[in-house]
């Protein structure tokens, strides 16, 4: 499962990437995750199964959705409570649920 995380500058999502990677290793899940900034979103998107939007840029969801629908990648907004150093498991679960629904 390949998850793309997007926030404003790609800085804070890179912290969340570590949290997800750590949890994925613990749970023995095959997860690849990468963080990008808003401007890199489109070029990276096509290589991923699902795109998750950081809560602080959720007001731009419509913009991300427009791009994502062009590449047929489903999206979701990360819950605020999951967006931190201990939220890895919630994010993996959320990504799975989105993919199940597709």
């Amino acid at each position: 499962m390949k998850i793309l995380l997007v926030c404003s500058g790609g800085m804070s999502t890179s912290i969340v990437v570590k949290a997800v990677e750590k949890k994925a290793a613990e749970l023995k899940e095959d997860v690849y995750v990468e963080a990008v900034s808003t401007t890199q979103f489109e070029e990276k998107l096509k290589d991923f199964d699902v795109a998750l939007i950081a809560p602080q840029v959720r007001h731009r969801k419509q913009y991300f959705d427009e791009i994502a629908s062009k590449h047929h990648v489903p999206t979701g907004v990360i819950e605020p409570q999951a967006y931190g150093p201990f939220g890895g498991e919630k994010i993996i679960r959320q990504a799975k649920e989105i993919l199940k629904g597709v």
């Binding site: 804070s12 912290i15 950081a54 809560p55 602080q56 605020p80 931190g84 201990f86």
Partner: peptide, 26 residues
């Protein structure tokens, strides 16, 4: 634990871990 995880990003002015982790939001 959150403080320890957030101190290095915090010194670099990245505070989403604190804002959403504590949380400060709402």
């Amino acid at each position: 634990n959150l403080g320890r995880a957030s101190i290095l990003p915090g010194i670099c002015n990245i505070n989403e871990p604190v804002v959403f982790g504590t949380p400060i939001v709402l």
